[in-house]
Nucleic acid binder design. Sequence first.
DNA 1: TGCTAAATCTCGAAC
DNA 2: GTTCGAGGTTTAGCA
Lengths: 273, 273
Amino acid sequence: MLIKPTLRCHLLSNKRSPVIVIENPNQKDAVLQIQNALSEHKTLLLVGNCWVDYKGRASSKLEPGERILIIKSDGSVLVHRPTDYSPVNWQPPGCLFQTSLSPDALRIRAIRPKPREHIDIYFDKIHLLAALTLKDEGAFSLYASEQDMQKAILADPNLIESELQPITFEKPVEPGFIDIYAIDKQGRLVVIEIKNETAGKTAALQLQKYIEAIKKTANRQTRGILVAPTLAKGVQPLLHQLNLEYKPLSPQQCYQTLQRQLGIGRPRLDSFL
Amino acid sequence: MLIKPTLRCHLLSNKRSPVIVIENPNQKDAVLQIQNALSEHKTLLLVGNCWVDYKGRASSKLEPGERILIIKSDGSVLVHRPTDYSPVNWQPPGCLFQTSLSPDALRIRAIRPKPREHIDIYFDKIHLLAALTLKDEGAFSLYASEQDMQKAILADPNLIESELQPITFEKPVEPGFIDIYAIDKQGRLVVIEIKNETAGKTAALQLQKYIEAIKKTANRQTRGILVAPTLAKGVQPLLHQLNLEYKPLSPQQCYQTLQRQLGIGRPRLDSFL
DNA sequence: TGCTAAATCTCGAAC
DNA sequence: GTTCGAGGTTTAGCA
């Protein structure tokens, strides 16, 4: 049997590609596609003119406008306006769905069993409908923030060098706050400046200012250590010139340290505070 | 000049519909469409296989998988996996973008100036690309939650009836907490149970339990008022039977009251607490 | 299942 | 601009 090239292409593309896309579907086609997608726990993507009613923990009403609706395979719902990070209406995972068609509009109701609440999303024009079968096994790893790196170093000062003893952190001095203030094994003061990204000249100069501030008050030998995963070009010479040190330390390493500490090392880090 | 039917149709549909959709674009087409959409501050929708690196307040790495990317016209970024309410990677509004093409993948870099951070999103396969021009002027109104209704009534007891004097709220009694505890103009105790949705029989029975608990300790005439926007079927007779009252009150009314109070009535509601 | 604390919290308003 | 507080907060970790 012969298949028209265009049709064949279409069928093939649907098989290969995990997306079914319909532009400007009529309401009847749309409701069928939506019901099908929802029943098969696909991810549903709708772009169109809609209005939304929500009743539950609070109540809300959204007047008509063009938005993006995402219904995920776990039953979470997102209605996104063309601006802002956060959805204007939403539901967390676990919703049940009802789709129905009235002369005026296509309605999708998402019902959350507990706490009992629901949102009604009405479409009178759908520009784009996509039913997606997304395969996503990729691992997500969150590394430490600057604050976390601070915590990690406080929890295990060996990350910087052996026998380092932290005195305090976020120590206020004239130009700002010293990330970590410590004493090394030879009794010298140590000022530590932490960056979770490539450290630039600014970081080096900032550290230098802290050192100067400390030297004004404390009559003791003082070291400055810049802690960061990498150094920007030209910072290494600057550090040398300012007589400052550099200790490579990645957010990943800190993250691992924190995980370890969290896992075994109760009492928790908080006890340090 | 003659235009091929298919092309003509395409152009027309682009004019009428605020969406440009391309299925399975090649990388070269994609990068052009993306750059164009971003420069025109359109909303960009991408579905495909991607991996993400984030560095800033924290750092993160997301291994390859199929996801939805939304870049909004205000420069906010959302990377959504097929599950969960929250995006796996994101940026708040105000990002700047760089799009580039390497042999391996198409890269979109979103840079947030302050605090300085960025996410790199790499696509090696795009199933769906859509550039949207969403018109959304619709007003969004959030009405009161149950807690807000409580605040509103405390701020203006006239919402229930004249000369009502609240004594306390969240009053702990045997079966739970009384939303509002008050005295009416005739000196009778009043127990108020608030629902921000249609009140069912449960609400009426709950109120009844509170009344019984109060009657055990206070030797005074006690009224019970169920406050809700509407009553479920069969609740009215039940209330009558239990000798309880019903006061219709919508979250919307409370919201307006709160707004008024907030606008003029400093000191704020909190001073009541 | 219900509670507590943290979050790349976001978001808006007051200072 | 910065700080502060609320949110339909959400989310993760525990009792």
